[in-house]
Simulated assay, not measured.
Amino acid sequence: MEKVNKVVLSQVITPRDPQSYKGNYGKILIIAGSTHFGGAAILCSSAAVHSGAGLVTVATTPEKFTAINVKIPEAMTIDYHSKKDLQLAIQNSNVIAIGPGLGTSSVAKGLVKAVLTNTNAEQTIILDASALTIIAETDLLLQSEANLVLTPHQGEWQRLSQLPIAQQTPENSQAKLRELNPKAILILKKHLSEIYYQDKILQIQAGNPGMATGGMGDTLTGILAGFIGQFGFSIKTISSALLIHSLIADDLNEKNYVVLPSKIIEKLPKYMAKFSQK
């Protein structure tokens, strides 16, 4: 198992071209939130914006528009009940993150199906939270022309893989991922989170118990979307997104008993500037 260290951050987070515009840094679609879980959409989209995504669109329930527009004026909003608007947003996005706070309603199931069946090989789909539960509980298959990134915690991975937590060894998890989709990347969120991609298994050497709070996974999904949108789909990009999330949390944990996801988000631009210096 390969250990991921800070070297990867300087390899991935490169200085921006002086002649840049927002279209150079990814068009991100985040499909998230529901009546009872609007905060997940806010954290996910805020993390994407703060990690440098060029354009972020949030597809959510309309009752959450005002909160998102006030908290994250940089993000656009669309109603995920509108099939026409959703289809257009899917087509126009480089990276689609779906699942945070989405729930498992019939509407949510339709959204997951729409994303899996209407994307192409030039796009990346990040499946998180409710999206993983929907796939585990329905006959939807992890098949898509797009690049797939799965981000379960151990309980979600148990539902998806049918591997009890005690049996989630690197060998078993790698074998199960090959069954589900051999081209996908798995981020198994746990103490010292692991990344699985084809024949590679990587482990993050960062993280702390102060991160055990609601919204932490939603924040990671947003960072992943922002990084992939800017730096492309690769194991290095995904490793760097996961690592910077935990490194910032470790710094915060030195003086804070609990690490709030919103505090990680605030520090992202400064940390990215630090590691972009050659």
Rank of each mutant, 00 (worst) to 15 (best):
I135V: 13
D251K: 10
A166K: 11
G222A: 10
I264V: 05
V12Y: 10
Q198I: 11
A131S: 15
A67L: 13
I98E: 00
E137C: 05
V12K: 02
W157M: 02
V70D: 09
L86G: 02
L192F: 14
I223L: 05
L177N: 06
N94H: 13
W157R: 03
L55M: 11
N92F: 06
H191W: 15
T35C: 01
G214K: 06
L243S: 04
L177M: 13
M211D: 01
Y80C: 08
A241S: 09
N118S: 15
K109F: 07
M211L: 13
G222I: 00
P170N: 11
Q174R: 14
S239W: 05
L142M: 13
V4H: 07
I248K: 00
T77A: 03
D199E: 15
G217C: 05
I135F: 12
K176H: 06
I31F: 04
D250R: 03
P152F: 12
I185P: 07
A225C: 00
M1T: 14
V95M: 14
S34P: 06
M272A: 05
E74Y: 06
T219F: 01
Q277E: 13
M76W: 12
G210V: 08
D139H: 14
D128W: 03
K6N: 12
C44T: 13
I125D: 02
W157F: 12
P152N: 04
T151K: 01
N94C: 03
H191C: 00
V58R: 00
A75K: 07
T151P: 01
A53C: 04
A273Q: 11
K113N: 09
A146M: 04
N120H: 12
L142H: 01
A166M: 08
K255W: 03
I30P: 00
Q91L: 03
S240N: 00
L220K: 05
A241N: 10
L186H: 08
I42T: 08
S106V: 07
T77V: 04
G217L: 02
T219K: 01
S130F: 14
L43H: 03
D128Y: 00
P164D: 06
D139W: 04
G210R: 04
E63L: 10
A131R: 08
A225W: 08
L150T: 00
T104K: 12
K71V: 08
H191D: 12
Q91S: 08
Y271N: 05
P269T: 03
L242A: 14
